[in-house]
Amino acid sequence: MSEEEARVEIGELQQIAASEVKPEDVGTLTLEYREGQPVLTVSWGTAIPSGVPVLDESGQVVAVYETVPAPQTKALTMPSLMTGGVENINVMTYDFFGTPWAEKQVR
């Protein structure tokens, strides 16, 4: 396999052949739950497997989770909001130390 074949760009992910990954780059995956949803967290490295097999109690593969690029979020700008149908933006501010309802400034 040539180096060009080993490296395939997938969004911001870069797929590299397992034989090219340095041991110090291998990330540790941890499964945790956030708001009731399973989340894999990578730490101590930058390389993650392209597929993670799921085994049952007997060691048989029952599923494989594969990596896909994370969805990219766009920054909201006023023109994009207006194009999307936003007509008004209400801004509320509070002044806890001004008059007439705050008698004295607290320090």
Rank of each mutant, 00 (worst) to 15 (best):
E5A: 10
E5T: 05
A6R: 14
R7C: 00
R7Q: 04
E9Q: 14
I10F: 01
G11Q: 07
E12N: 13
L13K: 00
L13F: 06
Q14D: 03
A17W: 02
A17K: 06
S19E: 12
S19F: 01
E20M: 14
V21M: 03
P23W: 07
P23T: 05
E24N: 15
D25P: 07
D25C: 04
G27S: 15
L29P: 00
T30K: 15
L31M: 11
L31Y: 03
R34G: 04
G36F: 04
P38R: 10
P38D: 05
P38N: 08
V39K: 13
L40F: 15
L40W: 13
T41G: 01
T41F: 09
T41K: 15
V42A: 14
V42K: 15
S43K: 15
S43H: 11
I48W: 09
P49S: 11
P49L: 08
S50L: 08
G51F: 02
V52L: 15
V54G: 05
L55R: 13
L55F: 13
L55H: 10
D56V: 07
D56M: 08
G59Q: 12
G59M: 09
G59C: 10
G59F: 11
Q60K: 12
V62C: 05
A63G: 03
Y65L: 14
E66V: 04
V68L: 11
P69I: 07
A70K: 03
A70N: 01
P71V: 06
Q72R: 13
T73L: 11
T73Y: 11
A75Q: 08
L76S: 11
L76N: 08
M78T: 11
L81D: 06
G84P: 04
E87P: 01
I89Q: 03
V91F: 04
